[in-house]
């Protein structure tokens, strides 16, 4: 069965959500691919994990205002969250603010959102940045919105676990502060990953290929899960999954 890049990324992320430690996945604004992955994982696992899409209606459980998602994370009630970055470096530092010298940066981006808190409190943060280039994966970020690692005297139950790009999946070792290549997208190569990464990573002797989307999961994505996705992301469900729901 043929599949699109976005469908491949959804099934790749969903596989990272299928372990017992994942009980509650929260998804931030404008994140249809992680949102769809969480809904797919819930279907595959028969109802687990809980999925909270902050911009959904019925899929958004938060009733105590904008602060509740952060308070819930601080209480340890959220196991997985997704973050990205304009720049990401080898220590998993994230920059969501801008490139160049702060504050009058060369190119300003929207801002750090809740990253400087969620990165510390959510145990399994998945970094998601489809574009895999040296523009994104830099030796050192120009501005640290949220640091990848912390000193031992800083309370930090959370942090980065995985990085998913269009080229590969990496894991992050918090003790060593380093990424390790886990698998490479079908049709792409380890060399391609290294050529497009501006920092050193650990590369095992043999690197697996990231599995292609399983047929039954693609079928779910294009039917019942797609309908759930459409509740929050109607344009994405229509354009990417071919699922159109009457308003």
């Amino acid at each position: 069965m043929s599949y699109s890049r976005d469908e491949f990324l959804i099934t790749t992320i969903a596989r990272l959500l299928e372990t017992d430690d994942v009980r509650h996945v929260a998804v931030g604004a404008a994140s249809p691919i992680p949102g769809a992955a969480a809904l797919l994982a819930r279907k595959v696992r028969g109802g687990m994990p809980r999925v909270s899409l902050i911009h959904g209606k019925a899929t958004n459980p938060f009733c105590d205002g904008g602060r509740e998602i952060f308070d819930a994370a601080g209480q340890g009630r959220i196991d997985v969250f997704f973050l990205g970055g304009v720049q990401i470096d080898g220590q998993a530092n994230l920059n969501l603010v801008g490139t160049g010298e702060y504050p009058t940066v060369d190119k300003r981006f929207s801002g750090s959102f809740g990253s400087a808190f969620m990165y510390f409190t959510v145990p399994k943060v998945i970094l998601f940045r489809p574009e895999h280039s040296r523009r994104v994966f830099v030796p050192k970020v120009d501005f640290i919105s949220a640091p990848g690692v912390s000193d031992p005297d800083v309370h930090r139950p959370g942090g980065p676990k995985f990085l998913v790009t269009e080229l590969c999946v990496m894991s992050f070792d918090r003790d060593r502060g380093r990424f390790k290549l886990e698998s490479v997208t079908p049709g792409r190569t380890v060399e391609e990953v290294l050529d497009n990464t501006g920092f050193e990573i650990d590369v095992p002797e043999t690197v697996a290929e990231t599995p292609a989307p399983e047929e039954e999961r693609l079928a779910l994505l294009r039917s019942s899960v797609g309908v759930e996705v459409a509740d929050t992301y109607p344009a994405f469900a229509k354009d990417v999954l071919g699922v159109e729901v009457a308003a």
């Binding site: 904008g66 009058t104 750090s112």
Partner: peptide, 21 residues
């Protein structure tokens, strides 16, 4: 917003969501 921050015509004070709450 981007143009004003880049040119310095507004002063930017960066924060993070839970800090404002």
């Amino acid at each position: 917003f981007g143009a004003a921050v880049e040119s310095g015509s507004v002063k930017i004070i960066d924060s993070t969501c839970p800090a404002i709450h």
